[in-house]
């Protein structure tokens, strides 16, 4: 790890100011990606701006038709939340499948969504549920937020403060874990709303994406059989030593069916 300055601001405006004023500074939430990167000397920011003192960013709020989760809320808290378990059990299940217990107790939803790792779980839940990303500056719809491999709509100095999830009629997540890393080789989040179904896929490509043919088929008939014959085009899907693109494409269909099963159970 190379030396860096460390700041622990008391408020969002201070944090945003530090991020803008210090060139090459980085925000740290749970640090589950950033700290290993620093240790391997793959990143060497001049300063870290740590959000851990901002208590207002932690916790969940029941908005009646929505649940708002503070950006600094750890995965373990979301997984164990009675509110989430009752209203969006698929999201609680997703949180319970991230990493291992140590990662779940340190890693945060805001950190995961801002990082937008192509194999992370939360982007599938956020996009699948059509959530809204609330930042220090504005509100961004999930459909406009994830821009591809580690890219998001966040501007310099913009900080995620919370994520607001609409409550679906039904929702489920199915994840095929990469054998070594246990990131999603393919993870599919399915959510049924009164006005239709959303299907979001993580792990399979360079960034989370929706599958419109599955969405329309499931909107007609919310049953695994409705999508069993839908094949995903392998163009743009990831091939690596663990899985070639055609296997990932196949797994999208399998995991989508299992996510529907999970939503129905």
């Amino acid at each position: 790890m190379k030396p860096f300055a460390y700041h622990q601001p008391d408020g969002i405006p201070d944090a945003a100011k530090l991020l803008i004023s210090i060139e090459d500074s980085k925000l740290v939430a749970g640090g589950m990606t950033l700290i290993p990167t620093l240790k391997q000397r793959l990143a060497s920011p001049a300063a870290l701006v740590d959000l851990s003192k901002l208590g207002s960013l932690k916790g969940l709020a029941d908005g009646g038709t929505t649940i708002t989760i503070g950006a600094m809320t750890p995965h373990a808290v979301v997984a164990a939340s009675k509110l989430v378990q009752t209203k969006i059990p698929g999201l609680a299940a997703l949180a319970s499948m991230i990493g291992d217990p140590a990662v779940r107790s340190r890693g945060t939803i805001g950190g995961s969504v801002a990082n937008n790792d192509p194999a992370a779980d939360y982007p599938a839940g956020v996009l699948g549920l059509g959530a809204t990303i609330i930042t220090s500056k504005r509100e961004i719809a999930a459909d406009k937020f994830f821009l591809g491999l580690f890219e998001t709509a966040l501007e310099p100095g913009e900080i995620i403060t919370a994520i607001r999830f609409p409550m679906p009629l039904k929702a489920g997540y199915a994840k095929f874990k990469a054998p070594a890393s246990r990131y999603a080789l393919v993870g599919v989040f399915v959510a049924k709303f009164a006005d239709g179904v959303r299907v979001a896929v993580t792990g399979a490509g360079p960034g989370v994406f929706r599958v419109p043919p599955m969405e329309s088929a499931l909107s007609e008939n919310f049953d695994p059989s409705a999508i069993a014959a839908i094949k995903i085009n392998t163009d743009g899907l990831t091939s690596d030593i663990h899985a070639e693109a055609d296997y990932r494409a196949h797994l999208v269909t399998v995991m989508a069916k299992r996510a529907v099963d999970a939503a129905l159970s």
């Binding site: 054998p179 070594a180 890393s181 990131y183 030593i241 663990h242």
Partner: peptide, 19 residues
């Protein structure tokens, strides 16, 4: 797993080498 030609170890961490 090694990459033929470059000799790079592609499974060089616990993220890619499954114990």
């Amino acid at each position: 797993v090694y990459d033929e030609g470059s000799g790079q170890l592609l499974s060089g961490s616990l993220m890619d080498y499954c114990m």
